[in-house]
Design a protein around this nucleic acid. Structure first.
Lengths: 265, 265
DNA sequence: AATTATTTTGCACATTTTTACAACTATTTA
DNA sequence: TAAATAGTTGTAAAAATGTGCAAAATAATT
């Protein structure tokens, strides 16, 4: 069994149970304790969990009472190292003067941070409060927010009110985040709230690029937003397998793998 | 059972019950008394609870949060005492279940704070980023943002894109802030950016109430938004003169003067 | 296809952490 | 004040972790 597959398994267990013992994982994964510990170590570095003596704990998605959007804050720490790499790579597909659309995924927020740092003449359209907050007052960034009804659990504006402005706006590149993407089922989500906004963004956009860490690949979630043929490119991390790359490329989706880069600028 | 799992369990019990005995925890967690005590000790260090003889008690959220925030927040409040008073008064014209519109004035932000504190079933429509930020995740507040192009110097969304949603929305009360208001020249502003949004809000609203401190009274600024006959009420502070009250009332604008109140509820 | 290089994994052993049992001290309450 | 209940500390057994190194599995190269 591959390491990344184990990570995925561990993540799922953690999502379900909240915490696991190292020995339990040994049994489930059929590997030695050292391997499990090494896995947990890497996963902790990637902010995918918190290690504790005897096992690991989930990085709390729901810390009740403490206002809802902190849960979003917590979630954005998940796999943040990957997300930054992906965001950095995604920024290479943007040129000064263009207009880009960002939805409300956590990877979008990472991209917003890169944009704030690297661009001085860009229009950014978003339905994400966090992205808007990040780019609020950023020099040289023209910020357009969709508006609409605010959904705290997604930290974004949804409903058809959020789609109205797209009749007046053209987008060069739309960076789409997702819960799951597969060649067979296309791009899928857990919730359907945001799909209409994303669809509008896609319609308004010249080109759509999916930015998704490798844990989303091959995953089929509940609601289908569109097929893979609608997107021109997928940017992901090195967790993608050769096989998956071939499948996506065969379906007409170019694949870019974000690699660790050592402070180039 | 892992230590961290026990902490979580204890936290949940404490959240539910308020306090818990050491022996009770022994039974629930299936560990010795020393272990429970050590757990409570660690958790006390982490400020997750307060130890008492025989067990532990929940720490009230205020205790921990207080130290960091209040000094800064209080000072901010002291400065804008008059706006607070006006906002407090304005809130009396709102009833649970209604929908209200707030524009991007500083007094609107003060009103948003009062709303967050006092209401649990309200729809708030705004084009102000600060107001949206204040009400983001507020319990029982349905937040609708106009969207549109973000103007940093007003911290608000403007342009005609910000007016689109008003075809779909009805407002009970619109609280209008202004640079100047006079019986002769009506409501006037320094800039014209926001006027179209405010006009739409007014159109969509059943009633419009101007909230303006007394320094704005009798002032004629550059751009006229509408006449005083369009507004039903003016809420201001005690700096207003008897003469001014009479003039406004004669023009059909009822006047409410916000007074200092001593913590009534 | 065969070989080499690289990474990953598992085992043995030293180290650290955790826990429960005692024995003892402190606090509460009747 | 005495009896009961709760808290503290020392210690040893058990459980978990970290590390060096060799075997195994993968990837890369010829």
């Amino acid at each position: 069994m591959l390491a990344e597959q184990r990570y995925k398994e561990i993540s799922e267990i953690l999502e379900r149970e909240g915490s696991v013992k190292t020995v339990t994982l040994c049994g489930i994964l059929g590997t030695s304790r050292e391997t499990v510990r090494r896995d947990l170590e890497t996963m902790e570095e990637r902010k995918m969990l918190r290690r504790i003596h005897g096992g690991a704990m989930r990085v709390e998605p729901e810390e009740e009472a403490a206002s809802q959007y902190t849960s979003f804050d917590k979630r954005k720490e998940e796999r943040s190292a990957y997300k930054e790499m992906i965001a950095e790579e995604a920024a290479r597909f943007i040129r000064e003067g263009q207009s880009v659309a960002l939805d409300s995924g956590t990877t979008s927020l990472a991209l917003a941070k890169v944009i704030r740092r690297k661009f001085r003449n860009l229009t950014v359209v978003t339905n994400s409060f966090a992205v808007a907050d990040e780019l609020r007052g950023a020099k040289g960034i023209s910020l357009v927010v969709t508006g609409g009804l605010y959904k705290a659990d997604e930290d974004a504006f949804v409903s058809d009110m959020a789609t109205l402005i797209f009749d007046r706006i053209n987008i060069d590149v739309f960076f789409l985040t997702t819960c799951g993407i597969s060649v067979e089922r296309g791009i899928t989500y857990q919730r359907m709230d945001e799909i209409q906004v994303q669809n509008k963004m896609m319609e308004a956009a010249e080109e759509t690029i999916v930015i998704a860490d490798s844990s989303k690949l091959g995953v089929n979630s509940l609601v289908r937003m569109c097929g893979v043929e609608e997107v021109s490119r997928l940017i992901t991390d090195s967790g993608i397998t050769k096989r998956q790359i071939d499948d996506f490329e065969a379906a007409g989706v170019r694949v870019t793998v974000a690699e660790e880069r050592k402070e180039e600028e």
